[in-house]
Structures are given as structure tokens and as C-alpha cells.
Design a protein around this nucleic acid. Structure first.
Length: 514
DNA sequence: AAAAAAT
């Protein structure tokens, strides 16, 4: 089957040809003729199947043959993330280059004024993430009365992200008579219900997931101790022939730490996650696509759908919490028939997550050893320097139990005479002991006291992590020994209330407060 | 054990 047989107009075909494509993918082959006929489509397809072009190509054709009324937008595409929205906009630009269609990319994190200006000039296509679209609509900047083609992309992910109420609101502003294209990688009952509500007599299309990563991506996993992860990663980066790679972390706060660590060791790394300002996100992704940056340390914002041509490697610095995310992450490489390689660093604690992944992909991930690193074993206790005492030599259930009991002890102590149980204090880390030297506050409820107590502890841990990163990677800092720096006994950013209390406490020097 | 999205 060729693109030229699908009923697309000559200008779109020319753009496709310019791009060097002749054969449509299965989803394009199945969807395009129906979309051109004006039918609603319910498409079950993952990213990487050529789904985006399956709606942009016919939409360009439809829009080209129609006319805008009072310059109102005639089509709307909703995407779950800003990067995906930007990618769809690129697709419109690529395939619509022989047309005079105008579009607006309406995503958060960018200034309103540019988007509003564009809307005022009149656009044919809106490509948006839900939040910004609603915002602009409520400010009266968008008319949705003339939307003829509406696309919901990645519906299951929208569901995961809690966007469904937003989508329902948006749909309620659209004309009842319209064409709706609805795409989802999976069809759980809630998604099916949603589709029933939004679509009219849809043509259902389902394509096999893209060649499962198992076939085009060579996978491997190293089992290492938490403290050795960065070293293990560096070893892989040096021994593998890495052209460019995504390095996935589970937590945003770990991303920049890892990026800096890589940079210190001479790697060319950027970062991408949802807490960065949008301009930086865009800039970084562009630099990565150009090859100015070769390593991109990222969160799952980049796990799905982001298409970087010819990505050679994916590294899972952390084992993903959801098994499906593993498939999405490694699916960034080995695309379009190319070979890709995916490595994962697991720690002894990741036992269950790794088996869940193996179950999902129906195969074991081959285990490799890293030269010069002691390899770890599943089920082995993992040293947790950042937790202070109680990490080594005891298993997790014991530790958890201990923490629970300790919390209980402290709570009851708070209720009774706070200083009475000196004997038990030796069980606790020194910094906590010292905290107790402060005057107690009898009127504070137990819950409030616990909340107050746990807050500085979080800040302490954060500081400790920062310190570790400044140290040489190979040196694990375990606890503080006998010295507790005074700043550790305060919150890192004292709120005015805390500060006041602390000063007061010092002044009273142990006296009881009323 | 997390991340994604409006400000």
C-alpha cells in the first residue's frame, strides 16, 4: 500500500514525499481513509506506530478544502504533555508546508501574550494541553464554536493524569456535530465509556503495538548497590558505544544531582523534567535532538511518545515503579526498525519491580556484571546511608517495625513527661536526642508535634544528600559520627514561626513555656 | 517508591 492510494490530496502527498516516505504504517493505512470520509475514529494504538501522522495528514486535507468562518479555529488536538503537543505541531508544520494553514500551540509554561496574539490573528488548528486551553477559553480568548475536527490523543494517559474532568469540560464547549478522533494505547473500561460518550458510530481501529521492544532493543540489567549506581552508569557510558541516550530517573529531585555528577565526570548531559521552566525544557530537548547534548537525564515526562530519531541507548538509572513505564522508556530507542540498547540499574530493593517487568514483557532481562564493582544480590539488605542508623545489618521489615515503634514511643513520651525516659534515648541517633533537649510544648497536640518533628527531618535529609553529591562519588558518607553540625538541628529554611520558637527556646534555655 | 498539567 502506498500513501498515494489513501485518498490524500496532492499537496499533502508532496510533503510526504519531500520527507522521503512512500509507505504508510498500518495505523495510517487504516485510519486515513475513514478520517477523510469524516467518520469518527476510535484508534487503539501506541506511540511509535505512526499515529500522529494518521490524524495530521487527513486533517490538513480536510482543513485545506474547507473555509474558516470569522477566522475561528476549526480543529482542536489535545495532548497530555507539552512536549507531545509540540511534536504534533511539528508534524503539522512538516506535512502542511504546502498549505496556508495556521496553528497555535497552546501549552502552559509559556507566556499568554504570544498565544493570544496568534489566536487574535485567527488560526485553523489548535494544539493544546488541557490546562492552558481551559484557561484561555475562560479568559475569552478562544472560540470553540466552529471546531469541526476534534482529536483526543493518548486518552489513557490523560486518564492517569487526572485530565478527564478537564476533557469533559472542553467537550461540553464544542459543537455537538463534529468529527472526533480518539486514540488510546489501551482500552480499559473507563476509557471505553469515555469513548462512547464522545464518539458517534466510530470506526474502530486497532493496530498491533509497534514491534515489541524485545525484538529491536537489546536489554540488560546490572544489580548493584545504591551507592554504586553512578559509578556503574559511568562504566556503561564509557564501554558502550553511546551516540545519544535518555537516562531515566524516578524522581525529579534526583535528576539534576545525576546530571551534575555526569558533568563533573566529563559527560555532556542535560536534564528534562516537569518542574523546569518550559523554555528550558524546549531548549534542552532541541539541543538534544541537534546533538549538542548527548545524554539527557529525564523523568517519565520523556517516557512516552517523545521521538528522537536514532536514539542509541536508554538507561534506566532507576527501575520504574510501573512495569508499563519500562516498556515506554526503552521504546524511545530501537524505533523505526533500528537497533537500540537499553540498560537498567537495579538495587537489591528492586526485586519486586524487576519481576513485575519480567512478567509484563514475558522474558527475563539478562543480568550483567559491571567490571570493578561488587555485584549485589536480590533480597540482600541494602545499606541506606541517607536514613542514618538502622540501615545496616537488619532487614527492611525490622527497620520499618522499628520506625513505627519509635514513633509510638516518641508520641507517648510527648504526652507524658518529655524528659522522663532517658534510658531509651541511647537507641536513637544523636541529632534526635539533641532535639529533645529543647523545651517541650505541652499544649501542642501529638499530631502537630509529629508533623513539626518530621519536617526538619526532611530538610536534614535533603542537606545530607547535597553533601554527598559534593563529595567524591566513590566515598559513601554514613552518618555523622559524633559531631552534629549545629545547622543540622534547625530547619534549612526556617519559617518565621519556627525561627521565633527557636530563638525563644534559646533565650529560655530549657525553661518551660506556658 | 513517582510523574505528568494552569497560575
Amino acid at each position: 500500500m502506498l500513501f498515494s492510494e489513501l485518498g490524500l490530496g496532492p499537496d499533502v502527498l508532496r510533503a510526504i514525499e519531500d520527507k522521503g516516505y512512500t509507505q504508510p504504517t498500518p495505523i495510517q493505512e487504516q485510519a486515513i481513509p475513514w478520517v477523510l470520509q469524516g467518520r469518527d475514529v476510535l484508534g487503539c494504538a501506541q506511540t511509535g506506530t505512526g499515529k500522529t501522522a494518521s490524524f495530521t495528514l487527513p486533517m490538513i486535507d480536510i482543513l485545506a478544502s474547507g473555509r474558516a468562518r470569522a477566522r475561528m479555529p476549526r480543529s482542536l488536538i489535545l495532548e497530555p504533555t507539552r512536549e507531545l503537543a509540540a511534536q504534533v505541531a511539528e508534524s503539522f508544520e512538516t506535512y502542511g508546508k504546502h498549505h496556508k494553514l495556521s496553528m497555535a500551540l497552546l501549552i502552559g509554561g509559556e507566556t499568554f501574550s504570544e498565544q493570544v496574539k496568534r489566536l487574535d490573528r485567527g488560526v485553523d488548528v489548535l494544539i493544546a494541553t488541557p490546562g492552558r486551553l481551559i484557561d484561555l477559553f475562560e479568559r475569552g480568548n478562544i472560540m470553540l464554536n466552529d471546531i469541526k475536527v476534534f482529536v483526543i490523543d493518548e486518552a489513557d494517559r490523560m486518564l492517569d493524569m487526572g485530565f478527564i474532568p478537564d476533557i469533559e469540560r472542553i467537550v461540553s464547549k464544542l459543537p455537538k456535530i463534529r468529527q472526533t478522533l480518539f486514540f488510546s494505547a489501551t482500552m480499559p473500561p473507563e476509557i471505553r465509556r469515555l469513548a462512547d460518550a464522545f464518539l458517534m458510530n466510530p470506526k474502530e481501529i486497532s493496530v498491533a503495538p509497534p514491534a515489541s521492544p524485545a525484538e529491536t532493543v537489546t536489554q540488560a540489567m546490572a544489580l548493584v548497590h545504591e551507592v554504586d549506581k553512578r559509578k556503574a552508569l559511568r562504566h556503561l557510558l564509557r564501554t558502550e558505544d553511546v551516540r545519544n541516550a535518555f537516562i531515566f530517573c524516578n524522581r525529579k529531585r534526583d535528576i539534576d544531582v545525576l546530571r551534575r555528577s555526569l558533568e563533573r565526570h566529563g559527560f555532556n548531559a542535560g536534564a528534562l523534567h516537569g518542574d523546569m521552566v518550559q523554555s528550558k525544557r524546549t531548549e534542552t530537548l532541541e539541543a538534544f535532538k541537534r546533538g549538542d547534548i548527548t545524554l539527557l537525564v529525564c523523568s517519565d515526562v520523556a517516557a512516552r511518545g517523545i521521538d528522537v530519531q536514532g536514539l542509541s541507548h536508554v538507561f534506566n538509572f532507576d527501575v520504574p515503579i510501573n512495569a508499563e513505564d519500562y516498556v515506554h522508556r526503552i521504546g524511545r530507542t530501537g524505533r523505526a526498525g533500528r537497533q537500540g540498547r537499553a540498560f537498567m540499574l537495579a538495587t537489591p530493593d528492586d526485586d519486586k519491580l524487576v519481576s513485575a517487568i519480567a512478567r509484563l514483557i514475558k522474558r527475563e532481562i539478562p543480568m550483567i556484571a559491571i567490571d570493578g564493582l561488587e555485584s549485589a544480590e536480590f533480597g540482600e539488605e541494602e545499606a541506606r546511608p541517607s536514613r542514618g542508623r538502622g540501615g545496616r545489618g537488619r532487614d527492611r521489615s525490622e527497620r520499618t517495625k522499628d520506625r513505627g515503634e519509635r514513633a509510638g514511643r516518641e508520641a507517648s513520651r510527648e504526652e507524658r513527661a518529655p524528659r522522663a525516659e532517658a534510658g531509651q534515648r541511647e537507641d536513637r541517633p544523636r541529632d534526635e536526642r539533641q532535639r529533645d533537649e529543647r523545651p517541650s510544648q505541652p499544649r501542642e497536640s501529638v499530631a502537630a508535634a509529629e508533623a513539626r518533628r518530621s519536617e526538619p527531618r526532611r530538610d536534614r535529609d535533603r542537606d545530607r544528600r547535597r553533601r554527598r553529591d559534593d563529595d567524591d562519588d566513590d566515598v559513601a558518607v554514613i552518618g555523622f559520627g559524633d559531631h552534629v553540625p549545629s545547622f543540622m538541628l534547625r530547619a534549612a529554611r526556617p519559617r518565621p514561626a519556627d525561627a521565633a520558637r527557636d530563638t525563644k527556646a534559646e533565650a529560655l534555655d530549657g525553661a518551660q513555656e506556658g
